[in-house]
Amino acid sequence: MPNEELTNLITDIEQMVNTAGEQFQSDSNLNDESLTTLLIASLIEEEFNG
């Protein structure tokens, strides 16, 4: 997988994790969309960092 694509993916995920954080701040509860974001972020972390 080209490094550039991966960097873009990680930037997107970081942005979505921030959005999930904002959603959590305003609702005091994570919704399904935010939980899915955190699932993807943790899977990517496991996939590439072991």
């Binding site: 997107d12 979505m16 699932l39 993807i40």
Partner: peptide
């Protein structure tokens, strides 16, 4: 399979759709 899906399309949007459907 995260790696296979990333090979298909390396984007957050794609992974989001994939996992939403999976769940």
């Amino acid at each position: 399979d995260v790696k296979t899906e990333l090979k298909k399309e390396c984007s957050y949007k794609h992974l989001n759709t994939y996992f939403s459907k999976f769940v």
